[in-house]
């Protein structure tokens, strides 16, 4: 394993270019991909800490498990479809030489993002629905956490949608660069990550 070899060798014993004349990244991925991976690890830390807080707060005694509105299931379906669309955009983009807004890759990419927008809107409706039925953010710690976890998740999705919207605009204007294929790829990875996070959060919220 080259990373292990790198950090265990005796640097004072070697002179010259040990690995040839090419510079050698530690990971064989693009810079953007690595940065995204690191960012997803950071986001995982955030959600893990929130869940730890959730379980600690749950043990204090005033916790009343909340009933999750059915609309959350519909929202979850939207998010799953959104992920599926972005994944198909990745698959289609591999087969197409040019990606335009009306190509299959372009359409899947667009629809995938719009479905995520619909998810955000749906979550917003759920918050209103809960508030109307007397289950507002202050009513119980379980509800407070529902608002907290969903809003932090939505904030992460909005970050992704910002990148998506910039790419979508350049797609409509027909000014996509070589980079575009990678953008689709990275968006899809981020979307899948947020889907997994959401399913985890949903599972915890619905069962405690």
């Amino acid at each position: 394993m080259s990373l292990y070899r790198d950090v265990t060798n005796k640097p004072w014993d070697q002179v010259g270019l040990p690995d040839g004349i090419e510079n050698k990244p530690v990971f064989a991925v693009s810079n953007e991909r690595l940065a995204l991976t690191v960012f997803m690890i950071i986001a995982s830390v955030i959600f893990s800490l929130l869940l730890v807080s959730y379980y600690i707060r749950m043990g204090i005694g005033d916790w009343v498990p909340m009933s999750i509105p059915t609309q959350v299931w519909a929202n979850t379906t939207l998010l799953i479809l959104s992920s599926v669309c972005l994944q198909s955009a990745v698959v289609f983009s591999r087969k197409q030489s040019t990606i335009s807004v009306v190509s299959r890759a372009g359409l899947s990419f667009g629809i995938g993002g719009l479905l995520a927008v619909a998810f955000v809107f749906g979550q917003y409706q759920v918050w209103g629905l809960l508030a109307e039925t007397g289950q507002g953010v202050r009513s119980n710690p379980a509800n407070s956490f529902f608002y907290l976890l969903t809003s932090v998740h939505v904030a992460h999705l909005l970050g992704g949608l910002w990148v998506w919207s910039k790419s979508a605009i350049s797609l409509i204007q027909g000014s996509t660069s070589e980079h575009f294929r990678q953008t689709i790829n990275l968006c899809a990875i981020y979307w899948h990550f947020l889907l997994v996070v959401w399913i985890g959060l949903f599972f915890v919220l619905a069962n405690t």
């Binding site: 790198d6 950090v7 010259g16 510079n23």
Partner: peptide
């Protein structure tokens, strides 16, 4: 630091 070091610059250098 991880990806863009110049040629010959291993981590332990």
């Amino acid at each position: 630091i991880l990806q863009a070091r110049t040629r010959g610059l291993t981590l332990m250098r």
